[in-house]
């Protein structure tokens, strides 16, 4: 007892400091580092990209084109209702600037400057100029973290737009992605456009991903093709966050032999 008390009088401060440090680090971890990312967002605010005059002109031109598309889509929809056609309606997105990258070398993530206060939630789909980028895996009040499709743990159900050959797009860490086909001899050639498939439960269908760069049909266990991404991931400055409800129900149809998709880990649920 006496020894314990003597230890306490000598080391109380040190023990207190260690407990404080460990518990506050644990708390931050439990909140996915929201506080740190808030501080980061606040600090980098003066550096976040604004719009130049050229970009503004370009944007208004894009806006005009978008409005034309909306008109065409509406016409298309009214035609489709006549033909009983069912398609996923992509809703308006939230524009966000890329303010940071992964805090570690093993992950391919970006940090966006829009968070739960602006309506971003976990599972929302992120696109950039050109096509799919990834999905939101963590949010804080004014930032969100996106797992890129080039991350090695990312899986996206995809298809070849021309021939409807199905596959899974897998990240390769170094801003490269490959598509693994389900069939032994898929109908595919270089230059084919890859889009997300309707089997994907975490992404809406028909979002462009990229073009086939090279094909390796001899690859085991499944034929593989390297994809040139249509959005420039290493130099990304802007992104759009689209609200999307991932369908993570067990009894949803899954293709036999399909690898689990980005983030949906059966059993463990290890990665967010």
């Amino acid at each position: 007892m006496f020894a314990l008390r003597r230890w306490w009088t000598r080391h109380a401060l040190k023990a207190g400091m260690v407990t404080l440090a460990v518990s506050s680090a644990w708390l931050l971890r439990a909140s996915d580092g929201a506080l740190i990312y808030e501080a980061y967002n606040w600090l980098t605010r003066p550096l976040q990209p604004g719009l130049s005059r050229e970009q503004q002109f370009e944007n208004s031109y894009i806006l005009e084109l978008q409005q034309r598309i909306v008109e065409l889509e509406n016409q298309n929809r009214s035609l489709q209702t006549m033909a009983d056609y069912e398609a996923a309606v992509v809703r308006e997105g939230i524009r966000a600037a890329v303010i940071g990258r992964a805090a570690d070398h093993w992950w391919q993530q970006v940090v966006l400057n829009r968070g739960s206060r602006q309506g971003v939630a976990v599972g929302h789909v992120v696109t950039g100029p050109g096509g799919l980028i990834g999905r939101v895996i963590a949010v804080s009040p004014s930032t969100s973290r996106v797992l890129l499709i080039s991350d090695p743990t990312s899986r996206v159900g995809a298809k070849v737009s021309r021939s409807r050959a199905m596959g899974v797009v897998r990240g390769q860490s170094n801003n490269r992605v490959v598509i693994e086909f389900f069939e032994k001899l898929p109908d595919v050639k270089t230059g084919d456009v890859i889009v997300t498939s309707s089997y994907s439960r975490l992404f809406p269908q028909d979002i462009p991903i990229g073009r086939i760069e090279s094909i390796d049909l001899t690859k085991s266990p499944a034929p593989e093709a390297v994809i040139q991404l249509s959005s420039p991931l290493p130099i990304l400055e802007w992104a759009m966050v689209h609200p999307f409800e991932p369908q993570e129900t067990i009894d949803a149809p899954v293709l036999p032999g399909a690898a689990p998709e980005n983030g949906a880990i059966p059993g463990g649920g290890a990665r967010p």
Partner: peptide, 11 residues
């Protein structure tokens, strides 16, 4: 402590 903090920031 720093490992926990980095876990918080990545995964």
């Amino acid at each position: 402590v720093l490992g926990l903090l980095q876990d918080a920031m990545t995964s």
